[in-house]
Write a protein that binds this DNA or RNA. Sequence first.
DNA 1: GTCTCCGCTTGATCTAGATCAAGTCTTTTG
DNA 2: CAAAAGACTTGATCTAGATCAAGCGGAGAC
Lengths: 232, 232
Amino acid sequence: MPEAHYPEIRALNLFAEMAEANFLALLRGAYVQNFPPQIELIGEGEPSDFLHVVLSGSIDLFSRWNDRETSLATVRPVSTFILAATIKNAPYLMSARTLEKSRIVLIPSKDVRAIFDADSNFARAIVTELAQCYRSVIKAQKDLKLRTSLERLANYLLRQQKHTGGGATFELDFEKRRLASVLSMTPENLSRAFKGLKPYGVTVDGTTIAIADRADLEHFAKPNPLIDDVTS
Amino acid sequence: MPEAHYPEIRALNLFAEMAEANFLALLRGAYVQNFPPQIELIGEGEPSDFLHVVLSGSIDLFSRWNDRETSLATVRPVSTFILAATIKNAPYLMSARTLEKSRIVLIPSKDVRAIFDADSNFARAIVTELAQCYRSVIKAQKDLKLRTSLERLANYLLRQQKHTGGGATFELDFEKRRLASVLSMTPENLSRAFKGLKPYGVTVDGTTIAIADRADLEHFAKPNPLIDDVTS
DNA sequence: GTCTCCGCTTGATCTAGATCAAGTCTTTTG
DNA sequence: CAAAAGACTTGATCTAGATCAAGCGGAGAC
């Protein structure tokens, strides 16, 4: 793979502290690939041959069962996905598809496991990353089990506002139909849910959201750091 | 703590491969405590001062938000809980309470982190354990987002039957009200759901379940290893 | 430009599941 | 033993959200 990508991969927490020699060894077996939109990169149940790193574009992690389908997460640059399957050498639990044109680094899983054994800084970083992933899913689980769909949307909007810098107006970073799936609701209901937040000062114009008074919306949404804080 | 407990703790995957000296150092700062039923051991949001190991009894991990409450998991002997919070030195995301009289080992989190740094076998075991935990929650998430409550109950029964040895008749290991919460439904609905499974050969007598024809129930439940396999 | 497709909205209905309200049965307690 | 509490069940009702069925409107194709 082109060395031009090395710095941005190296900058990831996962790779930042490992020995240079090990980093180079890891990337020696890796390669970069460009994918068009809507390509299924990974199917759940397949063996986990590669650790993936998204350099550009975005990836939808989803799952199917009995003709139903749900989005579980979205991966944006620059970050890795399916680390747990790689480490455990177990089948993928989720499928992955590109949402747009995306550039992906594929690192052979066996190399990751080998260097994990050899580099304790890398091992430590993996532990931190996995713990982080685990906690994120627990938060998602709480969001889903404790809140109604209207509350989930309200809190999503508050998180997204914060994430985009806190301005009164901001953009959704999802297609609405996928946001619906992420929030575990139908597109129709999402549409109605936006209307349901109007009394709390939320207005929608395409993918642009305006929040008139954050405090007002918070009063309804009751955001909680143990569910809504992305870090920690 | 009494050395009598050492072997059963040592037998856990998490501690099996670490150096003896480190194992002893870890337990030197640990202590065992007995708790009566219904004691809240941990409140979400508190700092994670101890890694917990359940020696006997059982523990409910749950969460509260806005006057609602949900069970997220049950911990049974012998295993650990809240490893991720310990490792990240971050607040607990879940509360924990004893369901019955329970004996718990408390290992100071700072010791766990120190020995994690010093013992690469221990580090590796932690990674495996965290990856396992992560994958379990993903499975739970899929169960919740892709299935109806009746399907969740049917698959739970199939898992439980397998877990107890596969006999046509077996015991629930939950109080029904808590099973309801774990399956994200109300006790009333659980009661009705059991009736709803009668056409598939499920009969209930107290906490004793009988499955007349496993194939018949499977035909309805459509169990999937990527959701229902406890290991892998 | 017009046409077509597709994502989104809106309204009308339907359904799974929640809630409310008794009642039964078992277990605990005095 | 009787009383009381608590778990579970059952029925009646209510509600959030899903589904079905049109429309609307913007973006790309020709």
